[in-house]
Simulated assay, not measured.
Amino acid sequence: MAGYTDNAIVIDAPMDLVWSMTNDVAAWPELFSEYASAEILERDGDSVTFRLSLHPDETGTVWSWVSRRVVDEETRTVSAHRVETGPFRYMNIRWEYEQAAEGVRMRWIQDFEMKPEAPLDDAAMTDRLNRNTAVQMDLIKTKVEAAARTSAARK
């Protein structure tokens, strides 16, 4: 059985700001609390291949992997997958952005399967991702909304 998560949050900010801030992979260490670094390896049209590294975990291990994202600004969607899968057999992520009355609804869908030798099984990773996604989405919401207020105050 594979793992699957589906999480969303509404950000009270203009679509263009939400889109640009959340798709600036090089700036993800400032946007997400879990990433220590984001290294752009290649850009090709609407796709970017990059290496993400987490802050050391409780054992001092630094987890790192390469992913590829393809953005579609017209449909306000992003599809991504891990190129270096690490403990995952595969990991696919879809980001969707939709204008709502209260702001921009940002949705992340993660479809994955853990390798048999991984430290967590699919159910445990689903729980971990759901908990962490809520934390990261709340943080992103706070940062993007603060940037929107700052931008509005300058006008």
Rank of each mutant, 00 (worst) to 15 (best):
W95M: 08
R128P: 08
E74T: 14
A80S: 14
Q99M: 10
V25C: 04
A26W: 03
A2S: 15
Q110H: 11
K115G: 07
V78L: 06
A100S: 15
Y35M: 10
D44Q: 15
I11D: 01
I11Y: 01
D111V: 08
V10M: 01
A123I: 10
A124P: 04
N7I: 01
A101C: 11
P116V: 02
A36K: 12
H55F: 04
R94M: 02
R149T: 04
M137W: 02
L120Y: 11
L31V: 02
T150S: 13
R131S: 10
A146C: 08
A2D: 14
V70W: 05
D12L: 01
D46W: 05
D6Q: 03
S20R: 06
T126C: 12
W65C: 08
T5E: 00
S37V: 05
R89L: 09
R68C: 12
R43H: 15
L52I: 12
A134P: 00
R76P: 02
M114V: 05
V104I: 15
A100C: 12
R76Y: 09
A38M: 08
L41I: 15
V48W: 01
E96W: 00
E39R: 15
A118G: 07
E73M: 10
S151W: 04
L120N: 09
I109L: 02
T5K: 07
D6M: 06
E34D: 13
L120E: 10
P56L: 05
D57I: 03
D6F: 05
V83W: 10
R107N: 05
W95K: 01
S47P: 03
G86M: 04
V104G: 08
T150G: 15
L52Q: 05
V48Y: 02
R154H: 08
R76Q: 12
V135F: 07
V18D: 00
R154F: 06
D57P: 04
R105D: 03
R69T: 14
F112R: 07
E74G: 09
K141V: 04
M125E: 10
T142S: 11
F88A: 08
Y90H: 09
P29E: 03
Y97Q: 00
D46L: 05
A152G: 02
R131E: 11
T5C: 04
N132S: 10
T150I: 11
R51N: 08
G3Q: 11
E30W: 00
D16Y: 01
E39D: 13
V48T: 13
Y4N: 14
A36P: 00
W95N: 09
A2N: 14
S67R: 07
T85K: 03
E30Y: 01
P56H: 09
M15K: 06
E84Y: 01
L54W: 06
R131A: 14
A124N: 10
R89N: 03
S47H: 05
I40E: 15
T59Q: 15
S53M: 04
A38W: 12
H55S: 01
A148M: 02
D111T: 11
M114D: 03
V10K: 00
E73Q: 13
W95Q: 13
S20D: 13
R149I: 03
V104H: 10
E34C: 07
V25A: 12
Q99C: 12
V25N: 06
A38L: 07
A26D: 07
